[in-house]
């Protein structure tokens, strides 16, 4: 028996391409470093292709099919050689996993490539739990936090229990549920600037629910939502801090929170 196990090659470290997302790249590099650490520390052969830009959502949701397709082709070509493509954002991951194939005509070469590619795409936290089968992470974060379910991650990728499970194992962290954690924060990409008054009414409610939860920190898996919620909380003078869940899971939450100096 022992000879059989010893002669078997150890499972290769999966080759993982990290797609940091345009928002993380520009607005919150800390999330990228946290994602990179989580992946490297958990047995992945990590690479960050330098030619990455954006997943194309702004064009997609503005009805600009041609540009979306061109951007998707570029992302697929850059990342299709990896075993997995990991994204610290539910909405960008859903764009690549759910919507990329729909951009190409059935039966076309690009459709086949898009489908093969999309099968490899995972949102970061669900990749840790569902693919790497991680049950708990070794990190510490002194806080009481509440988790906001970002819409695309929740409804397009079914991300709900995974972050809660990993967060519940973090030393020093108490989790509490806010009212309506699954209701939109009002970000919606370009929606928040095109219909800013409506977006504001929605994020006002979200901020009120966060505050009412009594938590000192709000966590989420999408930077867009976090910028929106943090921006509202800060404008209102709230002391509640906002962070990406990856920062906490990676034990890298000692930096200033989102929107703090």
């Amino acid at each position: 028996m022992t000879s059989e196990t010893s002669t078997r090659p150890s499972p290769a470290r999966p080759k993982v391409g990290l797609f940091v997302t345009c928002l993380v790249d520009l607005m919150r590099p800390a999330v990228g470093f946290a994602a990179a650490r989580l992946l490297s520390n958990n047995g992945c052969d990590l690479a960050v292709p330098p030619e990455q830009t954006c997943c194309g959502q702004p064009a997609f949701n503005s009805g600009d099919r041609d540009d979306t397709r061109a951007i998707a082709e570029q992302v697929i070509a850059t990342f299709e050689g990896f075993d997995y493509v990991v994204v610290p954002s539910g909405s960008c991951a859903a764009m690549m996993k759910v919507h990329y194939p729909e951009l190409f005509a059935a039966g076309s070469n690009w459709r086949d490539r898009a489908e093969a590619f999309s099968a490899k795409v995972f949102e970061l936290v669900s990749f840790l739990t569902d693919v790497l089968k991680i049950e708990a992470l070794d990190a510490r974060f002194e806080a009481s936090a509440t988790y906001h379910d970002s819409c695309s991650g929740l409804r397009e990728l079914g991300i709900h229990d995974q972050p809660r499970k990993l967060l519940s194992g973090i030393d020093g962290l108490t989790m509490t549920e806010m009212k309506d954690p699954d209701i939109c924060c009002g970000f919606g990409g370009t929606f928040c600037v095109k219909y800013s008054d409506i977006s504001n009414a929605i994020v006002e409610r979200k901020a009120a629910n966060i505050t009412a939860s009594g938590a000192d920190t709000v966590l989420a898996g999408d930077l867009g939502c976090l910028l929106n919620m943090a921006g509202k909380l800060k404008r209102d003078g709230s002391a509640v801090k906002a962070r990406h869940v990856a920062e906490v899971l990676a034990g890298m939450a000692d930096t200033p929170a989102i929107g703090e100096g």
Partner: peptide, 24 residues
């Protein structure tokens, strides 16, 4: 140009360099 955002919210500021630059 970001009045739609800043009318109701602050805009969290980034670090001085992008992630990709720092990674490189």
């Amino acid at each position: 140009l970001a009045g739609g955002w800043t009318k109701h919210r602050d805009l969290p500021a980034p670090e001085t360099k992008t992630f990709l630059k720092q990674w490189a």
